[in-house]
Amino acid sequence: MAQEPLGIVSSPIRLDHLGYDGDQSRKHSRNLPLLLQAVRDQPGRVYYWAHLAETFAALGKGAAAIEAAKTGLVVGRRAETDKQKADTSLLFQFLARAALDKNPLAAMVLIHEGLARYPSDYALTFLKGRGLCLTGSYEDALFIFRQLLEVEVDGLVDELIAFDGRIFGEFSAHLAGVCLMKMGRQSEATAMFRAAIGMSLRSVS
């Protein structure tokens, strides 16, 4: 069926999507064969690889998730369109998160490459801060977390990639507190931890 050449416009309508509430195991099990077929049919579509990696991970298939992400990254490194580049950034995020606790230096290599390709990826920036904290670069990590805390979330617009709002709030405040504590700045750390708790309480209220 031919598609109508319709444009995309902004709308004041707000939709609350509840599809990610509750147990997602049935949804992931449903999606898995569809995604496997999708990457067979369109192996050059980076988003399918990213979604497949996340689905494998959600089902506890860690090795398959990493393999899917790595395969998708090979495709994504050749990306030319902005959409493909943004979807490739999701793969950098996935692999960096998987590597951070086990091998933070390897994770940092992925993070730096990802940010070079998609500099406005705040999620990768947050992961960079985590990596710096894990490797003892507390001052540099603190600078990143404070930058994230200053982002005006209401005015943040990226049409190609979404972010977990908590990286601009309690997540960054908590890790900023960890950095301050590691640097021996106890009173500042305490204040930051209290701020993180306040942000967390506001986000669930």
Rank of each mutant, 00 (worst) to 15 (best):
A2H: 04
Q3C: 06
I8N: 07
P12K: 08
I13T: 07
R14S: 10
D16W: 12
H17E: 11
H17I: 10
G19H: 08
G22T: 04
D23A: 09
K27P: 00
H28L: 15
P33F: 03
Q37W: 06
Y47H: 08
Y48R: 02
A53T: 02
A58F: 05
L59Q: 07
A63F: 01
A65Y: 01
G72Y: 09
V75Q: 12
R78Q: 11
A79I: 09
T81P: 00
A86L: 05
Q93F: 06
L95H: 03
L95K: 02
A96W: 01
A99D: 03
A99P: 00
D101N: 13
P104A: 03
V109G: 03
L110R: 03
H112A: 07
E113A: 13
L115G: 05
A116Y: 00
R117G: 10
P119W: 10
P119I: 06
D121C: 14
A123R: 15
L124P: 08
L127V: 02
T135W: 05
S137N: 14
Y138H: 14
E139R: 10
D140A: 13
F143Q: 14
F145R: 00
F145I: 07
R146N: 14
V151S: 12
E152T: 07
V153A: 15
V157Y: 11
I161V: 15
D164S: 09
G165F: 00
F171E: 14
A173W: 01
H174T: 13
L180K: 13
K182S: 04
G184K: 07
Q186C: 07
E188Q: 13
E188V: 01
A191W: 02
A191T: 07
F193N: 00
A195Y: 09
A195D: 11
A195M: 12
I197R: 13
R202Q: 14
S203V: 09
